[in-house]
Computed example of a mutant assay.
Amino acid sequence: MALEIKVLDYGDIELESSFLVLGHDCGRVKRVPVYGFLILGGSHPVLVDTGYRDNAIMESLGMRGLQFHENMIENQLAKHGLKPGDIRYICHTHLHIDHAGKDDKFPMNTTVVVNRREMECSVSGLMHPQYPMPDIQHLVERIHTPGALRFEDLELTGEIELIPGVTLEAANAHTEGSMNVHVQTAEGRATICGDVIYDINTQIVEPYRQTQDHEPQVTGNHAGSKRAEKAAIKKLLNSSDFLLMVHDKPAKVVDKQIAGRLDMQVPGPVVSSLPKRNWFPV
Rank of each mutant, 00 (worst) to 15 (best):
M1F: 03
E4S: 13
I5K: 09
Y10E: 04
F19I: 11
R31C: 10
V34A: 01
Y35P: 09
I39Q: 12
H44M: 04
D49H: 12
G65P: 06
F68G: 01
M72G: 08
E74Y: 06
N75D: 13
Q76H: 01
L82G: 06
D86W: 15
C91Y: 11
H92V: 11
L95K: 07
H96F: 14
H99D: 04
T111N: 08
E118P: 02
S122R: 02
S122P: 01
L126E: 13
P129T: 01
M133L: 14
D135T: 03
L139S: 01
V140Q: 06
E141A: 09
F151E: 03
G158S: 01
I160Q: 11
G165R: 00
V166R: 01
S178W: 05
V181I: 15
H182I: 00
Q184Y: 03
A190L: 07
T191A: 04
V196A: 00
D199F: 13
R209F: 08
Q210G: 04
E215F: 14
P216Y: 06
T219P: 02
N221C: 01
A223T: 13
S225V: 02
K230T: 15
L236T: 09
D241E: 14
K252C: 11
A259I: 03
D263V: 02
V266M: 10
P269I: 13
R277Y: 15
